[in-house]
Write a protein that binds this DNA or RNA. Sequence first.
DNA 1: TTTAAACCGTACTGAAATTGTACGGTATTG
DNA 2: CAATACCGTACAATTTCAGTACGGTTTAAA
Lengths: 152, 152
Amino acid sequence: MFKISRMTDYGVVIMAQLAQASDAVVTAPDLAAGAGLPAPTVAKILKRMARGGLVTSHRGMNGGYALSRPATGISVADIIRALEGPVEVTACVDGASGDACSVESLCPIRGCWDRVNSAVNRTLQSMSLAEIAHPPNFIDLPATPKRAAADS
Amino acid sequence: MFKISRMTDYGVVIMAQLAQASDAVVTAPDLAAGAGLPAPTVAKILKRMARGGLVTSHRGMNGGYALSRPATGISVADIIRALEGPVEVTACVDGASGDACSVESLCPIRGCWDRVNSAVNRTLQSMSLAEIAHPPNFIDLPATPKRAAADS
DNA sequence: TTTAAACCGTACTGAAATTGTACGGTATTG
DNA sequence: CAATACCGTACAATTTCAGTACGGTTTAAA
């Protein structure tokens, strides 16, 4: 329940890596290697980020991706929205087209989920990428390949 | 993203119906008919509710289900927990058993999701079933079969 | 005592979403 | 001109979810 998709989790990690490079341009394969994730998957995530305006792509040689805004101006909500569209808790509001939920506008349940929705959105909006990328007292995950020994 | 499952949506509706019957015992097929949902699905939901201690089952003739607590003492969080287990946003905390997320305890992302998780839980906990079942100015959805004319 | 209503529990089937992969195309730099 | 790296779509596999079916047990009423 309420579990985020793996893509979303990956997306935040990738963006955090990019935030540590600031204005530097990083290639998709390089980010994939740094995070220990399959390269095509990372490429797909970055493409969606670019489409959402969170990162800027540079084609050609020495190309790659870079944040299009300072990390302090990018929230986790922005990342999720770029990956999976607007954050909605209920299928009621976007999926049911007039049939599944017949009580619709007078449905007391709807108000309930809306409240949850607002709380989630508010929390996601309040968390900036900078907070995640530069934690108060942690290492800044350099090029540490986590599964270097695991995948034998 | 963050979308609740249909089962959860159904569960809240069913529980709201039960709340309006208070101490009365209602059969699973009756609740299913009132909500316009398939009977086996409703039965499955009620079984889980009973297993979670939210409703009490009465077997035999004139049996059925009733709330085991006043509606004011049952939160939406309780319902979700009974249906789908503890409310966790990340797969990190429950799914990955030591391999998927290798940075684990020093992962700054983890703290991020934990914050979201707390916000969601707090909101869900603050909403009681009574609020949904007896809204301030709404009808109390009696035996109105919503799709009586639709399924021809 | 018998019968019927209603819950109990597991297993199975089908469908849907998600994840991961591949391929050919385009732009930029050296 | 050649190599690098993003671009976009399409496809296959896996997993999860919703829905269904069946046989069993309990209780109350006739």
